[in-house]
């Protein structure tokens, strides 16, 4: 099983980065933009859908349980 990756891991095919922070900022901007003009309730629904889509993509339930635990710890 691949362990849960908690190191910076964002990248995009075909893009060359001259600054280490750029790929993470690219992602974060897309994330925030996706929520633009939504009501709080709509945003909650979007987040739930997004988690389900990504969880299915990851697939490995061991990894997902580890992520679920870490996410819960900080709440």
């Amino acid at each position: 099983m691949t362990p849960l990756n908690l190191e910076p891991n964002f990248r995009e095919a075909g893009k060359r980065y001259f600054n280490a922070y750029t790929p993470g900022d690219d992602f974060y901007e897309s994330l925030i933009n996706t929520h633009r003009d939504l009501s709080d309730e709509q945003s909650e629904l979007l987040n739930a859908r997004l988690i389900l889509i990504l969880a299915n993509h990851i697939g490995d339930i061991g990894v997902l349980r580890e992520a679920l635990t870490i996410a819960r710890e900080g709440v």
Partner: peptide
């Protein structure tokens, strides 16, 4: 606690 989180903190690049 997590390096990926630190990389996302943006207090001015």
């Amino acid at each position: 606690d997590h390096a990926f989180g630190r990389a996302l903190v943006n207090s001015g690049r």
